[in-house]
Computed example of a mutant assay.
Amino acid sequence: MARVALVTGGSRGIGAAISKKLKAEGYDVAATYAGNDDAAAAFTAETGIKTYKWNVGDYDSSSEGLAKVEADLGPIDVVVANAGITRDAPFHRMTKEQWQEVIDTNLTGVFNTVHPLWNGMRERKFGRVIVISSINGQKGQFGQVNYAATKAGDLGIVKSLAQEGARFGITANAICPGYIATEMVMAVPEKVRESIISGIPAGRLGEPEEIARCVAFLAADDAEFINGSTISANGAQFFV
């Protein structure tokens, strides 16, 4: 019987690549999205992966959505907390709303996604928690105090969950992508994109599929001894 995988923010960008890769690896995949109904419908039509709409920043909505996925597909074995937003501004101009929106989605959203599933994973003695953090959670970034704080916090989450879950066959790991050729990055002006690439020793942007392959590696049954770790996938741009 195929394992069930959930990917939050799984119908676009890096999340879409992760969803497709996990399906290709034989998982039954569910992808969540927050608001773009047309994009989600197109993704399902293209891939056959069912999409579910809820706000990961709301605990009750997440719990209800997760229960619906498990009713449809069975217990969730692999959870990929990928959903994230940016609300960039220099700190002196950042509003409390910009701060809170990012905290709610990128940090509290991980808790809201994993916590309702945790006891089930403990009981079944198996679970894979994979959080998509960011290079900017490792090194910080101008204009992203809110975003960097959440992505750094995500690393603390996985290190703590790893210690709690290890004896129950649960692993928790993070992936920190560098600059990836998503729709958002490719939409920036060409000169800005060239400036970004000039700072990457590999000389190029990463591809969403490269992050997806990292996820598939960590999700595998035989990856149990890799726990509490962070994979930096950034083309040698930054080392920890």
Rank of each mutant, 00 (worst) to 15 (best):
F91T: 05
F126E: 13
F111P: 00
P75Y: 03
V129D: 09
P90S: 13
V110S: 04
S62W: 00
D72A: 07
K139R: 14
Q138A: 13
A67T: 11
D104C: 12
P116Q: 10
E101K: 05
T86R: 15
V110K: 01
S62D: 15
Q98C: 15
N112W: 00
D104F: 11
A81R: 02
G84M: 05
E101I: 12
A71G: 12
K96Y: 14
P90K: 13
T108D: 05
S63V: 01
S62L: 11
V129Y: 09
P90Y: 10
E101V: 14
L66F: 03
S133D: 08
V80M: 02
G120H: 10
A89Q: 10
G65R: 09
H115E: 15
A81Q: 06
K96E: 12
A89D: 11
S63G: 11
N112A: 02
R128F: 05
I85K: 04
Q100L: 08
N119W: 10
R87L: 09
G109N: 05
L117C: 05
V78P: 12
V102A: 06
G109R: 00
K139Y: 07
N146S: 11
L117D: 14
V110H: 05
G65S: 07
G140F: 14
H115A: 03
G65P: 04
N82I: 02
E70M: 10
R93T: 14
T86E: 01
E64M: 02
I135W: 08
E97H: 15
N82F: 03
G109A: 00
K68S: 15
N146L: 13
L73C: 09
V145C: 15
G120T: 10
E123S: 13
G127N: 04
K68M: 06
S134I: 01
T108W: 07
E123V: 09
F111A: 01
Q144V: 03
F126P: 12
H92N: 13
V69G: 05
M121P: 05
H92G: 02
R122I: 04
Q100M: 10
G127E: 06
G137Q: 06
E123T: 08
G137S: 08
N119M: 12
K96G: 01
M94D: 12
I103V: 15
A89H: 04
Q98D: 14
V69F: 01
Q98M: 11
R124H: 07
N82H: 04
